[in-house]
């Protein structure tokens, strides 16, 4: 247990070991550790950001969905309204057409009746003249008596 030169030798080797450790061991290891912890921190932050983004996207998606549902409902409602309107219009048109057709038909019928009456009247006057001729036994000059015939026909 003597104190001797070993003391100095030990102190010197201690100093050299510390110097070496300080120069060549400590810096690379601590740099790598710091870099890794930075990497991990970055990764965690990225994960956080991603989950936040996801939440945002989901919110957006639901909002878009809701809006599109509303749009669709509105469109359907408009379409329904328009269909009803079209049906109504069609009905009115049909009714109007029918009325017009009926009126036309009626007019035609009336015209026909008039024409038939006219023809009938003419026929009747001719018949009357024939009867009168037969009765009188003489020919009635058609030219001389046409005025009378026409007047007669008018009276019929």
């Amino acid at each position: 247990m003597n104190l001797n030169l070993t003391l100095l030798g030990q102190a010197i080797s201690f100093a050299i070991f510390v110097w070496f450790c300080m120069k060549y061991v400590w810096p690379p290891v601590i740099a790598a550790l710091e870099e890794r912890s930075k990497k991990i921190a970055d990764g965690l932050e990225a994960a956080n950001r991603a989950s936040r983004d996801l939440e945002l996207a989901q919110e957006q998606a639901t909002q878009i969905l809701r809006e599109s549902k509303e749009n669709a409902a509105e469109i359907i409602e408009q379409a329904n309204k328009r269909a009803n309107q079209m049906v109504d219009e069609a009905k009115e048109q049909v009714i109007a057409d029918g009325k017009r057709l009926r009126e036309a038909a009626q007019a035609e019928i009336e015209q026909d009746v008039m024409r038939a009456k006219e023809a009938l009247r003419a026929q009747v006057s001719v018949l009357a003249f024939a009867g009168a001729e037969k009765i009188l036994g003489a020919t009635i000059d058609e030219k001389a008596h046409s005025e009378i015939v026409e007047q007669l026909a008018k009276e019929l």
Binding site: L3, L7, Q10, A11, F14, A15
Partner: peptide, 11 residues
């Protein structure tokens, strides 16, 4: 060895 420990502690 006291020399070893004392060498370090004196440093």
């Amino acid at each position: 060895d006291i020399n070893a420990t004392l060498g370090m502690s004196l440093s």
